[in-house]
């Protein structure tokens, strides 16, 4: 087993990256070019290979982790991208489940680092605050965790004039057996899907929704534009350091058993109706089976983007009559 130098999680001996946080498990300088296999001495200080020019991917292609049969996450770089700039975090604390998905904006500087640091910062903050939480003020806790994530992204170097400043989406969920509280920036989503119905808890901060809100275009019309995938709020990005984008919040009361799903756009881009896809995972899948299946399914549809899914099965407490 190899211990991750950053988060101390134990990984398989042959792992090149930590399955939990994506940190490379061998020092950069010890490894040569992942593309042309040039020796380590050929890699310049910015990570570019001085033979083939390729910059090494920062995150592992594919990651999975499970806390139990009912709570797991999976992530894959998909088929078109060269690295995985999505990151997920799952945890449990004081009776609360914690789930975070971040999707680094691939056209900004350091997208993989941005999503990794943001998710880490948010999860650390949640774990700390929820230890002593009685279930009140969960939205406030989420808001602070997103602030912590914002600071982590802002701390990345912004000095590359050729690239947009580091930016990432974030969706944070805290769940217990009765309620899910969610906060987000950008277009990473949370759904609750039961046998009877499917509810999207988040609403994307996207160009499409902005057009709809302003009454300029219908959802169908706006979705066809090449601007459709532009997100209007992020962690980091162009906004003033002192005036970060304000997250949105949502709550969902759980009255029947179902799946809480968090995902990046690599999944939802392929379906308007997630409820129809879940049964394809088979009869009574575990959380890990479902998350892996959905990632694999998105890859089968084309895998145009990084794909990340967190699945949490929630059975509501039977309320006393």
């Amino acid at each position: 087993m190899r211990s991750c130098p950053k988060c101390e999680v134990q990984n398989d001996e042959e792992s090149r990256f930590c399955g939990e946080c994506g940190t490379p498990l061998t020092e950069m300088s010890e490894e040569g070019c992942s593309n042309c296999h040039a020796p380590a001495g050929k890699i310049d200080k910015d990570g570019f290979c001085s033979v083939c020019g390729y910059q090494r991917p920062i995150n592992a292609d594919s990651r999975e982790s499970a806390l139990s049969n009912s709570f797991a996450g999976a992530s894959d770089k998909g088929k078109k991208h060269f690295q995985n700039e999505d990151v997920f975090k799952i945890g449990a604390c004081n009776g609360f489940y914690i789930a975070v998905v971040c999707d680094g904006v691939s056209t900004s500087a350091h997208p993989a680092e941005a999503s990794c640091l943001a998710a880490e910062a948010a999860k650390d903050h949640l774990s700390e605050k929820l230890t002593h939480c009685n279930g009140n003020g969960l939205a406030k806790v989420i808001e602070e965790s997103i602030e912590a994530a914002e600071q982590a992204v802002q701390a990345l170097p912004r000095n590359d004039p050729k690239l947009d400043p580091p930016a990432s989406t974030i969706v944070v969920a805290i769940a217990d057996k009765n309620k899910v509280t969610v906060g987000w920036l950008g277009d990473s989503r949370a759904y609750f899907v039961s046998e009877k119905k499917s509810k999207q808890i988040t609403r994307d901060h996207s160009w499409v929704n902005a057009q709809v809100d302003e009454g300029k275009l219908s959802y169908e019309e706006a979705s066809k534009s090449r601007m459709a995938h532009t997100i209007t709020k992020t962690l980091g990005g162009y906004h003033d350091i002192d005036q970060p984008d304000q997250p949105s919040f949502g709550e969902f009361e759980i009255t029947e058993s179902g799946w809480l799903l968090l995902c990046s756009d690599g999944l939802w881009n392929y379906t308007e109706n997630i409820k129809e896809v879940i049964p394809l995972a088979g009869n009574k899948p575990t959380a890990q089976e479902l998350a892996s299946f959905l990632v694999q399914w998105a890859n089968q549809q084309g895998g145009k983007d990084n794909i990340t899914v967190i699945a949490l099965k929630i059975h509501p407490e039977t309320k006393p009559l």
Binding site: D44, F48, G53, Y54, K80, H81, F82, Q83, K304
Partner: peptide
Amino acid sequence: RVKPGSIGQKMLA
């Protein structure tokens, strides 16, 4: 002229 990379690939051209 370089060999095209995948989406998100960064290359010193």
